[in-house]
Amino acid sequence: MARRPSGDGPSTPATVALDRAGVTYSRHPYDHDPSAQSYGLEAAEALGVDPAEVFKTLLVDTGAGLAVGIVPVDGQLDLKAMASTLGVKSVTMADPAAAERSTGYVVGGISPLGQKRSLPTVLDETAYALEVVYVSGGRRGFDIGLAPADLATVTRAVRSAIGRPVS
Protein backbone atom coordinates (compact mmCIF):
# COMPACT_ATOMS: atom_id res chain seq x y z
CA MET A 1 0.00 0.00 0.00
CA ALA A 2 1.10 3.55 -0.64
CA ARG A 3 2.28 5.81 2.14
CA ARG A 4 0.34 9.01 2.54
CA PRO A 5 2.89 11.46 3.94
CA SER A 6 0.49 14.26 4.82
CA GLY A 7 -3.12 15.25 5.05
CA ASP A 8 -6.34 13.36 5.38
CA GLY A 9 -9.08 13.71 2.86
CA PRO A 10 -11.64 11.42 1.34
CA SER A 11 -11.18 8.15 -0.42
CA THR A 12 -11.94 8.70 -4.11
CA PRO A 13 -11.36 6.68 -7.28
CA ALA A 14 -8.14 8.73 -7.65
CA THR A 15 -6.77 7.68 -4.25
CA VAL A 16 -7.87 4.08 -4.86
CA ALA A 17 -5.96 4.08 -8.18
CA LEU A 18 -2.82 5.41 -6.48
CA ASP A 19 -3.10 2.92 -3.62
CA ARG A 20 -3.48 0.04 -6.10
CA ALA A 21 -0.43 1.26 -8.02
CA GLY A 22 1.63 1.50 -4.83
CA VAL A 23 2.39 5.17 -5.45
CA THR A 24 3.43 7.48 -2.62
CA TYR A 25 1.27 10.60 -2.55
CA SER A 26 -0.07 13.22 -0.17
CA ARG A 27 -3.68 14.24 0.42
CA HIS A 28 -4.57 17.92 0.66
CA PRO A 29 -8.18 18.71 1.55
CA TYR A 30 -9.12 22.38 1.81
CA ASP A 31 -12.27 24.45 2.23
CA HIS A 32 -13.64 25.02 -1.26
CA ASP A 33 -15.38 28.31 -2.01
CA PRO A 34 -18.14 27.67 -4.60
CA SER A 35 -17.81 31.29 -5.77
CA ALA A 36 -14.10 30.94 -6.63
CA GLN A 37 -13.31 32.23 -10.12
CA SER A 38 -10.69 29.52 -10.73
CA TYR A 39 -10.73 26.18 -8.91
CA GLY A 40 -7.05 25.66 -9.69
CA LEU A 41 -5.87 29.04 -8.44
CA GLU A 42 -8.04 28.56 -5.37
CA ALA A 43 -6.27 25.24 -4.74
CA ALA A 44 -2.81 26.81 -5.12
CA GLU A 45 -3.68 29.53 -2.63
CA ALA A 46 -5.26 27.08 -0.15
CA LEU A 47 -2.24 24.75 -0.38
CA GLY A 48 0.25 27.62 -0.17
CA VAL A 49 2.09 26.58 -3.31
CA ASP A 50 3.05 28.28 -6.58
CA PRO A 51 0.24 27.98 -9.16
CA ALA A 52 2.81 26.50 -11.57
CA GLU A 53 2.88 23.41 -9.30
CA VAL A 54 -0.90 22.86 -9.45
CA PHE A 55 -2.17 21.20 -12.60
CA LYS A 56 -5.69 21.16 -14.03
CA THR A 57 -7.29 18.29 -15.87
CA LEU A 58 -8.94 19.33 -19.13
CA LEU A 59 -10.83 17.09 -21.52
CA VAL A 60 -10.82 17.62 -25.26
CA ASP A 61 -12.87 16.11 -28.05
CA THR A 62 -10.78 14.75 -30.92
CA GLY A 63 -13.78 14.04 -33.11
CA ALA A 64 -13.17 10.34 -32.53
CA GLY A 65 -13.35 10.44 -28.74
CA LEU A 66 -12.15 12.28 -25.67
CA ALA A 67 -8.61 12.82 -24.42
CA VAL A 68 -7.07 14.38 -21.31
CA GLY A 69 -4.64 17.29 -21.12
CA ILE A 70 -2.91 18.12 -17.82
CA VAL A 71 -1.49 21.67 -17.64
CA PRO A 72 -0.56 24.21 -14.94
CA VAL A 73 -3.52 26.14 -13.53
CA ASP A 74 -1.83 29.47 -14.24
CA GLY A 75 -1.81 28.74 -17.99
CA GLN A 76 -4.00 27.43 -20.78
CA LEU A 77 -4.18 24.32 -22.88
CA ASP A 78 -2.76 24.90 -26.37
CA LEU A 79 -5.35 23.12 -28.50
CA LYS A 80 -3.09 22.99 -31.58
CA ALA A 81 -0.26 21.44 -29.59
CA MET A 82 -2.67 18.96 -28.02
CA ALA A 83 -4.02 17.94 -31.44
CA SER A 84 -0.50 17.55 -32.80
CA THR A 85 0.54 15.39 -29.84
CA LEU A 86 -2.53 13.19 -30.30
CA GLY A 87 -1.94 12.94 -34.05
CA VAL A 88 -5.28 14.46 -35.01
CA LYS A 89 -6.16 17.46 -37.16
CA SER A 90 -7.83 19.45 -34.37
CA VAL A 91 -9.40 19.22 -30.94
CA THR A 92 -12.05 21.24 -29.14
CA MET A 93 -12.81 21.49 -25.47
CA ALA A 94 -15.12 18.64 -24.48
CA ASP A 95 -18.70 19.28 -23.51
CA PRO A 96 -18.77 19.44 -19.68
CA ALA A 97 -21.55 16.84 -19.46
CA ALA A 98 -19.57 14.46 -21.70
CA ALA A 99 -16.47 15.02 -19.55
CA GLU A 100 -18.42 14.19 -16.40
CA ARG A 101 -19.97 11.06 -17.94
CA SER A 102 -16.62 9.81 -19.21
CA THR A 103 -14.58 10.48 -16.06
CA GLY A 104 -17.14 9.90 -13.31
CA TYR A 105 -16.14 13.21 -11.74
CA VAL A 106 -17.84 16.63 -11.66
CA VAL A 107 -16.34 19.62 -13.47
CA GLY A 108 -14.05 21.45 -11.09
CA GLY A 109 -13.14 18.16 -9.43
CA ILE A 110 -12.06 16.07 -12.41
CA SER A 111 -8.94 14.13 -11.52
CA PRO A 112 -6.62 12.68 -14.15
CA LEU A 113 -6.46 9.60 -11.90
CA GLY A 114 -9.08 6.90 -11.43
CA GLN A 115 -11.34 7.93 -14.29
CA LYS A 116 -14.17 5.57 -15.32
CA ARG A 117 -12.68 5.20 -18.80
CA SER A 118 -9.03 5.14 -19.71
CA LEU A 119 -8.43 8.01 -22.14
CA PRO A 120 -5.36 9.15 -24.07
CA THR A 121 -3.58 11.50 -21.67
CA VAL A 122 -0.93 14.17 -22.21
CA LEU A 123 1.05 15.75 -19.36
CA ASP A 124 2.61 19.16 -19.99
CA GLU A 125 6.38 18.96 -20.01
CA THR A 126 6.69 21.69 -17.35
CA ALA A 127 5.59 19.11 -14.76
CA TYR A 128 8.86 17.25 -15.12
CA ALA A 129 10.89 20.15 -13.72
CA LEU A 130 9.05 19.81 -10.39
CA GLU A 131 9.53 17.35 -7.54
CA VAL A 132 5.81 17.33 -6.74
CA VAL A 133 2.75 18.32 -8.73
CA TYR A 134 -0.73 18.78 -7.33
CA VAL A 135 -3.81 17.56 -9.18
CA SER A 136 -7.46 17.22 -8.27
CA GLY A 137 -8.11 14.31 -5.97
CA GLY A 138 -11.55 13.79 -7.50
CA ARG A 139 -13.55 16.34 -5.54
CA ARG A 140 -13.66 20.10 -5.35
CA GLY A 141 -11.59 21.06 -2.33
CA PHE A 142 -9.29 18.03 -2.46
CA ASP A 143 -5.91 17.83 -4.19
CA ILE A 144 -3.27 15.13 -4.34
CA GLY A 145 0.47 15.75 -4.42
CA LEU A 146 2.71 13.27 -6.22
CA ALA A 147 5.83 12.99 -8.34
CA PRO A 148 5.25 13.89 -12.01
CA ALA A 149 6.74 10.58 -13.16
CA ASP A 150 4.25 8.70 -10.97
CA LEU A 151 1.38 10.76 -12.37
CA ALA A 152 2.52 9.94 -15.89
CA THR A 153 2.91 6.25 -15.10
CA VAL A 154 -0.49 5.79 -13.48
CA THR A 155 -2.33 7.77 -16.19
CA ARG A 156 -0.15 6.36 -19.00
CA ALA A 157 0.44 9.96 -20.08
CA VAL A 158 2.75 11.08 -22.81
CA ARG A 159 4.97 14.11 -22.27
CA SER A 160 4.51 17.14 -24.50
CA ALA A 161 4.52 20.94 -24.51
CA ILE A 162 0.74 21.45 -24.46
CA GLY A 163 0.53 24.38 -22.04
CA ARG A 164 0.90 28.05 -22.78
CA PRO A 165 0.84 31.20 -20.66
CA VAL A 166 -2.43 33.05 -20.28
CA SER A 167 -2.39 35.94 -22.75
Rank of each mutant, 00 (worst) to 15 (best):
V106F: 15
T103W: 04
A157G: 02
R4C: 10
V106W: 13
R140F: 11
R140N: 07
K116C: 00
G63C: 12
A67H: 05
P72Y: 04
M93A: 07
R117H: 14
D33I: 10
T85L: 01
V107E: 04
V49Q: 02
P165L: 08
T15A: 10
L86N: 06
V73I: 09
L146M: 15
R20W: 08
R4A: 03
S35Q: 12
V166T: 14
R101S: 08
D31F: 10
T103M: 06
H28I: 01
R101H: 11
R140Y: 10
K56V: 03
A36M: 02
L119I: 03
F142L: 14
F55A: 00
E131H: 11
A36E: 06
R27W: 07
L146D: 08
D150R: 05
A2P: 15
K56Q: 05
E125Q: 13
A17H: 12
S26H: 08
S136T: 05
D74R: 12
D74C: 10
R117P: 00
L59I: 04
R156A: 11
P10R: 14
P10W: 13
A97D: 08
G87T: 04
A43P: 10
Q76I: 01
Y39W: 11
V132C: 11
T92P: 06
L119S: 05
K80M: 02
V88L: 08
S84E: 11
L146Y: 14
H32L: 04
T121Y: 14
A127W: 08
L47F: 14
D78A: 13
A83R: 01
S102H: 03
L123R: 03
E131W: 04
M82T: 07
V49P: 12
G109R: 06
L130C: 04
R101W: 02
V88N: 01
S118K: 15
P5L: 11
I144M: 10
L151E: 00
Y25W: 15
R27I: 00
Y134G: 10
V166K: 15
L123Y: 04
L77F: 02
T153E: 15
M1N: 07
D50A: 11
V158H: 10
D19G: 12
I110V: 15
V122R: 12
L18T: 01
L123K: 02
Q37F: 14
A97K: 15
A21P: 12
L123D: 00
S38T: 03
G40I: 05
V73A: 04
G114I: 04
P148C: 09
G65L: 08
R3Y: 11
T103F: 08
R4S: 11
G163R: 05
R159F: 05
G145V: 08
G22F: 13
P13G: 11
D150H: 13
D78K: 02
D74G: 09
M82E: 01
K89P: 00
A98F: 02
V88G: 01
T85A: 15
Y39S: 14
S38P: 07
